[in-house]
Design a protein around this nucleic acid. Structure first.
Length: 389
DNA sequence: TCTGGGGTCCTAGGACCC
DNA sequence: TCTGGGGTCCTAGGACCC
């Protein structure tokens, strides 16, 4: 049975309280199932819904294979997410023909060699190409050239525009803006006054104005990173919370070291049983990439912030990233202790690299029912830029 | 109905400095 | 005694993306 042809979703485990729709087949659209909504709600909309668990290693493999094919058609390829990429076709016509022909070639090759279908959008900038790629699916090539904007883009509901989410849709509707065309032809100054810079941005987008370059991912500087986890049970005491934070610190610090960064700011986020979120952050006296230090800071932040309610989700996020070799010591650093801790980190990293992520872990997690390295969706880091073209 | 996890950017208010 | 104005940094929270 082909999951793509029946109502089917990839979803997290409801027992682990991760039961949301992560991806959906095209037939799900008819039932009004939306990505990100609870599985229980999706099942209600479609009683026969088939739910399969995610397989991130497979998605990463497909992602890499896709990128390899795309790079055969241009040196300028930017991976935008696990399943989207931008390709600058400038100058490639002489090798592979006009863009429409080239796109069809790429699309068919992916289908035949990788076994899945893609949509390709063609235009003069990334915004228009992306909007075009979201037109009818599957296995299609669409164009959205500037002269096609009024006929192809403007009739769409405004929330279909990139960067118009739930909150902005509500505000725009309030202003009498319901289609992308309404937005494009709305008074720009007034929109800037009502919605600040975001108003000006989406006004540009509605008019097809966008000029960011296709940037290969190794030229993109990471701004921050973090890991968070939904806990199987509500945590109501510091000891358990600290244990979760330790497992998150393990993951985040290992990623920092793996990417060659130290962080200057640490943030802890808390989501309560009632789904209220709050966070607490601090700039460090000296940047760090050390697991124990990150753990100590995170527990301090947690203790300062926690109001005592049951917790269902915890996260550690680091930012102000500096290349490891540029970092400085403060006057108060214990240099010798720092060197010992960092060589301990190195040793653990090497063991995990050689024998696998779970080959060495802290005894506190034995029989704890908790993962010693929490957070993460896949096993490998890959550069993504969620909402920046 | 019972709600993932990874990111980026913007805004606002307060502290602090000149 | 009571009062400027501008700039930067820090923190918290919210918006958006996949």
């Amino acid at each position: 049975m082909d999951l793509r042809k029946i109502p089917a979703v990839v979803g997290g485990s409801q027992a682990d309280r991760r039961g949301v729709v992560l991806a959906k087949s095209i037939p799900c659209k008819n039932y009004g199932i939306k990505t990100g909504e609870p599985l229980a709600k999706a099942k209600e909309k479609c009683p026969g819904l088939v739910i399969v668990p995610p397989n991130y290693p497979l998605y990463m493999k497909c992602h890499k294979a896709l990128m390899d094919i795309l790079r055969e058609y241009s040196p300028l390829v930017q991976s935008f997410s696990i399943d989207e990429a931008f390709l600058d076709y400038t100058g490639m016509e002489e090798h592979f023909g006009p863009c429409l022909k080239g796109a069809t070639l790429i699309k068919n090759r992916i289908r035949e060699e990788l076994g899945f279908t893609v949509n390709i959008g063609i235009s003069t900038n990334k915004l228009l190409a992306k909007m075009a790629s979201d037109f009818t699916k599957p296995d299609r090539v669409h164009t959205l050239f500037p002269q096609e904007i009024p006929s192809k883009l403007w009739p769409l509901p405004v929330e279909r525009l990139f960067m118009v989410g739930r909150a902005t849709k509500a505000k725009l509707n309030e202003l009498g803006i319901f289609t992308i065309g309404d937005l494009a032809n709305y008074n720009r100054e007034l929109l800037g006054w009502k919605l600040k810079s975001h108003g000006l941005l989406i006004h540009d987008y509605a008019n097809g104005i966008e000029n960011s370059p296709v940037l290969p991912n190794d030229n993109i500087q990471m701004k921050g990173m973090g890991n968070s986890t939904t806990i199987k049970f509500d945590v109501d005491n510091k000891k358990d919370a600290h244990k979760v934070l330790l497992s998150l610190a393990e993951t985040v610090a290992a990623r920092l070291r793996n990417e060659g960064y130290k962080c200057g700011v640490v943030s802890v986020s808390i989501k309560t049983h009632e789904f209220l979120r709050y966070s607490h952050q601090r700039k460090l006296a000296a940047p760090t990439d050390n697991t124990n230090e990150l753990y100590e800071i995170a527990t301090q932040l947690f203790d300062e912030a926690w109001n005592g309610e049951p917790i269902c989700h915890l996260g550690i996020h680091v930012s102000h990233l500096y290349p490891r070799e540029f970092t400085q010591y403060t006057l108060f650093d214990n240099v010798k202790k720092g060197a010992m801790l960092s060589s301990l980190d190195r040793a653990v990293d090497n063991i995990r690299k050689k024998y696998g992520g779970h080959s060495i872990f802290r005894a506190t997690y034995l029989y704890s029912g908790m993962s010693p390295m929490a957070g993460g969706v896949g096993t490998e880091d890959y550069a993504v830029m969620g909402n920046i073209l």
